[in-house]
């Protein structure tokens, strides 16, 4: 299994765990190809820096309003949500996913420093070419999220002795 695969699995596991109760059916990976996801406008894009020893890049998330609305903590109260709410939630999702994965990633030998996420209403913001890139789609019924690791550097530091 490649290092990107391991990172991917750790983050996917945390993401799935975050929404286990909220979504009727658990999110599943690998059913839909990243370029075939049937997102519905409006679309949202969020990113959070992945930084640390041997790590330099971004974790990107593409999703649509359907997913953000379905999973938003305010949905159960009937709150009327707007674009700013969805942007804020998209950024917070990435924050919780990465932060919640840090312990597992540390066990794998990665030390990831938590940066600040940002979100925009778009399909994807242009980024400089990546040395390593891998995408993963998570889905549950009509709800889809696509993650992409966009990495300039990815080299796991040697595990410390003891």
């Amino acid at each position: 299994m490649s290092e990107l695969d391991q990172l991917s699995l750790a983050l996917a596991a945390r993401f799935i765990e975050l929404f286990n109760i909220v979504l009727r059916d658990p999110l599943q990976a690998g059913k839909t190809a990243p370029d075939k996801v049937p997102f519905q406008a409006p679309l949202y894009f969020a990113r959070i820096p992945l930084q640390g020893p041997g790590v330099d890049g971004w974790l990107l998330m593409n999703t649509d309003q359907r997913f953000l609305n379905e999973t938003h903590p305010e949905k159960k109260y009937g709150t009327r949500l707007d674009s700013a709410d969805y942007l804020d939630w998209a950024a917070e999702i990435l924050n919780r996913t990465l932060a919640g994965s840090k312990t597992e990633l540390k066990k794998q030998g990665w030390q990831i420093n938590l940066g600040l996420p940002t979100a925009t209403e778009a399909t994807a913001a242009p980024l400089e070419p990546a040395k390593f890139e891998q995408s993963l789609v998570l889905e549950s019924g009509p709800f889809f999220v696509s993650f992409t690791f966009h990495m300039k550097e990815l080299a796991r530091p040697a595990l410390q002795a003891g």
Partner: peptide, 12 residues
């Protein structure tokens, strides 16, 4: 919290 969503969870 910089996230309005996170703040609202606690506010409620």
């Amino acid at each position: 919290d910089d996230s309005k969503t996170a703040r609202r969870e606690i506010v409620r």
